[in-house]
Design a protein around this nucleic acid. Structure first.
Length: 819
RNA sequence: GCCGGGGUGGCGGAACUGGUAGACGCGCCGGAUUCAAAAUCCGGUUUCUUCGGAAGUGCGGGUUCGAUUCCCGCCCUCGGUACCA
């Protein structure tokens, strides 16, 4: 009697076995090679969605594969538990964010277990747990000592109706998402991290990240945006300070026709005093969005400030404008404008009728039409006095030298990267461990008083304002230094602070004595990090930065946190991102109930390569389920009828047996490459399916035949076990084996079984396929060429024509070029 | 706007280093089994075709004996754009 494939019963039983045996709990083992596999931890939104399923299955497959290679694998999971959605849910449901978050985490942990993910749950952590964020606060105070954090004014989105600060996400078309009021910029003091102090290292070490996708590395390089330029000072008439500008194109200095400063620049404030008409313009600028996309696409607007600068070399007077597109936070907050050779300056000059003076010649010396667009390429200088005729690098040096001689300019390396503002005026986050005392100033909370615990029993107002800002019992404290009455900081940390170091804390999540102990250097760096491509810049850059901070604080010895990075694409339905609004979500729970976790895992891995987006298909899930039933039934039938398996002797095999065995070992080779090198699983599954088809078709009752079939099934079961761990565990037993398949060695291919006697060669005439010929595997070029030319169908295309050339690609193809 | 991806049959995708375009799966069509259905199994399935072939990998060019793959210029689409995570 054969048994039915019943995934629910099977999966429950096997998950119970793993649980009872602590199969995935790991400790440091100096005798084994370690492998730390980490999938980006989850935001506890309430339910696992398909994006999670995919992300975590990928990590799980890699973990289980590495374990079969004999490594000591750690795969932990936790929760990125602070954040905005909990506050939104709190306002909506009138519950505290903490209660909502904790219940979501419980529910999701169960879902994780149902998926059969091989996590070491003894290491579970949550960022909203004081046991975790105590150390985040501690690190912050250490960084304050090292002068790596500081307080400065920074801009936020201010909703004037709700009287709250809004996240960029909460600003829709320039209006607050609840109130609908026009959002204003507001400047308040905030804490910043000096990531720019690490800009050079963050940039240069990208080169050492061989296990990262090129696209992510390029994005990070561009984000850091290192540039070499000149900072130079202009004298300003009737203004007692010089105006410094930063430019990467000093070669165009003679083409400067105006300067432009940001609306926040001190010169702009000075200008208002003399010309009140400017006030309206500056007020308008305040209402504009400050995010990068808006800045880049908005209409370029400006007003003449009333001031003139003096060109350092020509002595010419150039007007200074106030312009909405100049960033106060980049460079000096002021630019020199050369409309002839910069698109944006050109657009602005056209609009306001400002001079356009050509100072760069075209490559071939032909006339450039500067009435339609700027000429932005580099070239020889003209109209530039003593610098005429120089190229870019010559003029850069010469102009730099002259500016230095006159003491009005210097070479400057600039980064697009800005320091990281970490203050948030929100409730559900890690409290910033600072106390403000009238006498002692800014005082960090001493270690003995950490953690500063976030009160969890709070009620939320509909305006979305942070409850702790109204809780005197929270913010009224005594100064730790002098003991007088003082005020606690009520802002919380950006949640990126929480997620920038969790990967390290997983080494010792339950250590209440230290941030990190010696186990951190056993496990770190993470060998494989898996997560969404949407984190390519911010999270991954902050985490790299934090790892260097931890290194410089003496906790870790490595320079980079993630050796290999896999960025998975999104899960789509009907071509769009799944979302509740669109009503195109697929609930993993319902699918697991219907098909079992293995089917869901198999489909997630089969439908697309990890890095691509994945189009969800209900029919496709059916197909995956069908495949599992197919191997179940076939192995069941095979093992029922064939008990004795003989040892295979390659030389005794018939041609058909050799061919079958070749397929098995070719598949092992291909799948090993897919798992270990390419990290692509859809093709590995396809190869296993091909092997399955071949085994089903292969009818051979001889002892050798049975052994070859057994070998094939066993290979499939092992190779699929990281992807579908439950069913393969059971099939492993059916094939006559004991124990847990998680600890079985990954299969290896047999070189002898891979030897082919005959090869199939494609024959093309003028690049078009005309024949397929079989030649002996050791046939030389001449024989291959002769066989190709002698082929009947080939001759139909060659007779009566002159053969000009014959290209033979060994083992692959012959191309005959005729005229 | 800028930075980084992606675009191949009816659909998801394969082709790994420039060498058989469409592996594998879904769907569909036909057959077997069944009283019937479900399930299962077997076969077919890019398009056009005068059945010789011809065309074909977002669009337009180029390099090459040969291009999905390399180069140039576009179009569409997705991710990020510093307070969503």
């Amino acid at each position: 009697m054969s048994s039915e494939y019943n995934p629910q019963t099977l999966e429950n039983a096997i998950q119970k076995t793993w649980d009872e045996n602590n199969t995935f709990v790991v400790t440091e083992d100096p005798n084994k090679e370690k492998f730390y596999c980490l999938s980006m931890f989850a935001y506890p939104s309430g339910n696992l969605h398909m994006g999670h399923v995919r992300n975590y299955t990928i990590g799980d497959v890699i973990s289980r594969y590495q374990r079969m290679l004999g490594k000591n694998v750690m795969q932990p999971m936790g929760y990125d538990a602070f954040g905005l959605p909990a506050e939104n849910a709190a306002i909506k449901n009138k519950t505290a964010p903490a209660a909502w978050t904790y219940s979501n985490m419980d529910y999701m942990t169960n879902q994780f277990k149902q998926l059969g993910l091989a996590y070491d749950w003894s290491r579970k952590l949550a960022t909203c747990d004081p046991k975790y964020y105590k150390w985040e606060q501690y690190i912050f105070t250490k960084l304050l000592e090292k002068d790596l954090v500081y307080r400065k004014d920074a801009t936020v989105n201010w909703d004037p109706v709700d009287q709250t600060v809004l996240a960029n996400e909460q600003v829709i078309d320039g209006r607050g998402w609840r109130s609908g009021a026009l959002v204003e910029k507001k400047t308040i003091p905030q804490w910043s991290m000096k990531i720019t102090a690490y800009a050079e290292e963050l940039l240069s070490e990208i080169d050492s990240l061989d296990g990262w996708p090129e696209s992510v590395k390029t994005m990070q390089r561009n984000w850091i945006g290192k540039s070499k330029g000149i900072e130079l000072d202009f004298e300003v008439e009737n203004y007692n300070e010089k105006l410094s500008v930063y430019t990467t194109r000093p070669d165009t200095l003679y083409g400067v026709s105006y300067l432009a400063v940001a609306p926040e620049h001190p010169l702009a404030s000075k200008a208002v005093n003399q010309n009140p008409n400017l006030q309206d313009f500056l007020n308008d600028c305040k209402k504009e969005q400050s995010n990068e996309a808006a800045m880049a696409t908005m209409e370029k607007k400006g007003m003449f400030s009333g001031f003139h600068a003096v060109h350092p070399f020509t002595g010419k007077k150039v007007p200074i404008w106030i312009a909405n597109f100049v960033l106060f936070s980049y460079g000096t907050g002021a630019v020199m404008a050369v409309p002839a050779h910069d698109e944006r300056d050109f657009e602005f000059a056209k609009k306001y009728n400002l001079d356009i003076q050509q100072v760069i010649e075209s490559h071939d010396g032909t006339e450039i039409d500067l009435t339609q667009q700027a000429y932005t390429e580099k070239g020889k200088l003209i109209n530039s006095g003593e610098f005429d005729g120089m190229n870019f690098s010559q003029s850069f040096k010469a102009i730099k030298y002259k500016l230095e001689q006159e003491g009005i300019g210097r070479q400057q390396i600039n980064y697009r990267l800005r320091d990281w503002g970490v203050s948030r005026q929100r409730y559900w986050g890690c409290p910033i461990p600072i106390i403000y005392c009238d006498d002692c100033g800014t005082v960090p909370v001493p270690e003995k008083d950490l953690p500063v615990v976030l009160p969890e029993e709070v009620t939320f107002d509909s305006d979305g304002g942070s409850p702790i800002k109204k809780m005197s019992e929270f913010y009224n404290v005594l100064c730790p230094t002098c003991g007088k009455k003082a005020k606690r900081e009520t802002d919380t940390f950006d949640t990126f602070m929480d997620s920038s170091w969790y990967f390290a804390r997983f080494a010792n999540p339950n250590n209440d004595e230290q941030v990190l102990d010696e186990t951190a250097n056993y496990w770190l760096p993470v060998d494989q990090y898996v997560g969404g491509i949407e984190h390519a810049i911010l999270h991954l850059l902050y985490a790299r930065f934090y790892h260097k901070l931890l290194r410089d604080l003496g906790y870790v010895t490595s320079d980079e946190p993630f050796t290999n990075l896999l960025t998975q694409g999104m899960v789509l339905k009907d071509g769009a991102k799944m979302s509740k609004n669109k009503g195109n979500t697929v609930d993993p729970r319902a699918l697991i109930d219907e098909y079992g976790a293995d089917t869901v895992r198999l489909f997630s891995m089969f439908a697309a390569p990890p890095e691509h987006s994945l189009e969800w298909s209900d029919e496709g899930v059916d197909g995956s389920f069908r495949y599992l039933k197919r191997i179940w039934t076939n192995i069941e039938n095979f093992t029922q009828n064939n008990k004795i398996i003989a040892k295979i002797v390659q030389d005794d095999l018939t041609a058909d047996q050799k061919a079958m065995r070749l397929k098995t070992h070719e598949t092992i080779k291909k799948v090993s490459d897919d798992f270990g090198v390419r990290k692509i699983f859809n093709t590995a599954i396809a190869a296993c399916m091909e092997l399955t088809n071949a085994l089903v078709k292969f009818n051979d009752d001889s002892n050798n035949g049975k052994s070859i079939i057994h070998e094939g099934w066993e290979a499939i079961v092992k190779m699929l076990s990281p992807i579908v761990p439950h069913i393969t565990q059971e099939l492993w037993h059916k094939l006559g084996n004991e124990g847990l398949i998680v600890d079985v060695k990954w299969p290896t291919f047999n070189e002898k079984a891979l030897v082919k006697d005959e090869l199939q060669i494609m024959v093309q005439v003028n690049g078009k396929l005309r024949a397929k010929i079989n030649v002996s595997a050791n046939a030389d070029k001449e024989i291959v060429e002769k066989t190709a030319l002698g082929d009947e169908n080939v001759q139909k295309f060659t007779t009566g024509k002159q053969i000009r050339k014959v290209i033979v690609v060994p083992g692959r193809l012959v191309n005959i070029v005729v005229v």
